[in-house]
Computed example of a mutant assay.
Amino acid sequence: MSNRKWWQIATIIWMIVIFLFTQLPYFTGSHTATAIDKLFFIDKIGFLSSQAKLLLIDSLNFLIRKATHLTAFGILSFFLFKSLERYRFSYLLAWCITFLYAMTDEWHQSFVPNRTASFKDVLIDASGAFIVLLLTFLIKAKKRKKGETTEKVRLK
């Protein structure tokens, strides 16, 4: 099986993982906030007021949930890029497909009880994809430049 086929399989599996996590009720904002409270023992912090504890939980909840969006769709864009790498506009194609999938994921989420769809999340997903694809481009460019330098040294 070709290397590209493995990337295509990884892409499909990752899309399924995102789809499944979207429909799980455990990943609602309130469930995540409760998990954060228990995990970090925020209710046990004596020097914080109740209001400060809620603010801390809400802030952590926001950061964790949005970092998850950035990461999940960044990974998807990388898998898509590797699947499409041989095509001329592979970076753009990978970003566009990730963006479209993010929109359909939010639309799907709108039908899940206790979940809401948000175009802001689509933009965060697209940003994660952009960041990962930009990093991929920069790393590949650096490797290509290093390879060219090595080749010039060998030719001398």
Rank of each mutant, 00 (worst) to 15 (best):
Q8N: 00
L54N: 15
T71R: 08
S49E: 12
F21K: 02
A35Y: 14
V17Y: 04
K152G: 05
K146L: 09
F40S: 08
F111D: 03
L80R: 05
L39R: 12
F78T: 09
S127D: 09
L20R: 00
I97F: 13
L48Y: 06
F27T: 00
I131G: 10
T104Q: 02
L60A: 15
A141N: 01
D37I: 09
S90M: 01
T150G: 01
T11G: 03
S50K: 11
G29L: 03
T71I: 12
A72K: 01
Q109L: 05
I16Y: 02
S50T: 09
T28M: 05
A52Y: 07
V17A: 02
S90K: 08
I124V: 08
L60K: 12
E85I: 08
R86Q: 10
R88E: 11
F40T: 11
K152T: 12
D58P: 10
W95Q: 02
L63G: 14
L76H: 06
F27P: 02
K53D: 12
I42V: 15
F130W: 07
L93V: 05
F21S: 04
A72M: 13
F62L: 15
K152L: 15
V122P: 07
R154H: 08
T149Y: 09
T98L: 00
R88Y: 08
I75C: 12
F62S: 12
K5P: 00
V122T: 10
A33V: 07
Y87C: 06
M1A: 14
L63R: 11
N114F: 04
I12V: 14
A10F: 12
T150M: 10
G74K: 10
F81M: 03
L123S: 12
D125R: 07
F119R: 01
T68V: 09
S83Y: 11
A33Y: 08
L76W: 03
V153A: 06
Y101K: 00
I16H: 00
K143D: 07
H69Y: 13
L155H: 04
K120N: 10
K152H: 10
L155R: 08
C96W: 03
E151N: 11
H31T: 11
K66A: 14
L138M: 06
H108R: 09
I12S: 10
H69G: 13
I64D: 08
K53G: 12
G128N: 05
L39I: 15
L138A: 07
N61K: 06
G29N: 07
F40A: 10
H69W: 13
